[in-house]
């Protein structure tokens, strides 16, 4: 753990609104005036038009918006999977823009966790091996106490030796969450994590994500189109046509639905 340049959860402190801060003061994710355009001339598409966003430590953020709003693009840019056309992204103190591939890779290993909508796991590895993969890639030995805690939290103790093909969709996503948490990253990015799940498994995964935020102090940024999923978060930002147009704290499904309706009304 000492190799990680980023602070561990022990050193965060509580904020009045229930989120936690890092002693350094820098937020988990900071985006300043991000733009992203594809193509040129007649086929030019502006996916993001000047998005600024700050995600403090310990926050569960949901990014919502209709399709074409640019929410997936925003997630890719925040996570370092894609480069913005202009603007800045910082994870903690580290600015993503000028990083070499090697340093980006190290960042992904140590400071960022991913949960995708589908195809999260390597099909030839067992659940345990999938969870430990990031540590093994870094050449680090797992902290057994932490590992046990994560496995416990996610209820995977009896599934550790199964391969993904032997797990249900919900179980696969839980393994993916465990893998994302194992390195105690600065932030976990989740792209529609419950998109392929039935409502029961989906609810399970979402409450586990929320538990990781509340009990482990994890920061989570989630993209979703489902108002119910967004209601698990602590803060929701609404994206439309590449801009943040609305924001909500402590959302409930009804309020979210209402705001979404207003968005689409505006578009129409």
């Amino acid at each position: 753990m000492s190799e990680s340049p980023f602070p561990t959860f022990d050193r965060t402190s509580a904020r009045p609104d229930g989120t936690r801060t890092a002693p350094g003061g820098a937020a988990a994710v900071t985006a300043t005036d991000l733009t992203k355009t594809y193509g040129t001339g007649a086929t030019r598409v502006s996916a993001l038009r000047g998005v600024s966003l700050t995600v403090p430590d310990g926050q569960f953020l949901a990014i919502m918006g209709p399709s074409g709003s640019g929410k997936s693009t925003l997630l890719h840019c925040l996570a370092g999977l894609d480069t913005a056309t202009s603007g800045r992204v910082e994870i903690g103190d580290t600015r993503l823009g000028g990083l070499s591939d090697g340093r980006l890779t190290r960042l992904r290993r140590d400071a960022v966790g991913f949960v995708f909508q589908s195809f999260n796991l390597l099909p030839t590895l067992s659940a345990a091996d999938n969870i430990l993969l990031p540590l093994r890639l870094a050449g680090r030995r797992p902290d057994t106490a932490w590992l046990d805690r994560v496995i416990d939290l996610l209820g995977l103790a009896d599934r550790l030796h199964h391969r993904p093909s032997q797990l249900s969709g919900g179980q696969q996503q839980r393994v993916a969450v465990a893998r994302a948490l194992i390195t105690r990253p600065r932030v976990v990015f989740a792209d529609e994590p419950t998109g392929n799940l039935d409502s029961r498994s989906g609810a399970e995964v979402l409450s586990l994500l929320r538990a990781s935020v509340r009990e482990l102090g994890q920061t989570v940024v989630m993209v979703t189109h489902d108002p119910r999923a967004a209601s698990y978060s602590g803060r929701v930002v609404f994206l439309a046509d590449g801009r943040i147009v609305d924001e909500l704290t402590d959302p409930t499904p009804e309020v979210v639905l209402d705001r979404v309706g207003r968005l689409e009304g505006r578009a129409a």
Binding site: F114, P123, L137, T183
Partner: peptide, 16 residues
């Protein structure tokens, strides 16, 4: 390709 991309997301270096 998807598997390789996934592993890269999780933090594997190109050399690895």
């Amino acid at each position: 390709q998807r598997e390789v991309a996934l592993v890269r997301c999780v933090g594997a270096h190109r050399g690895q």
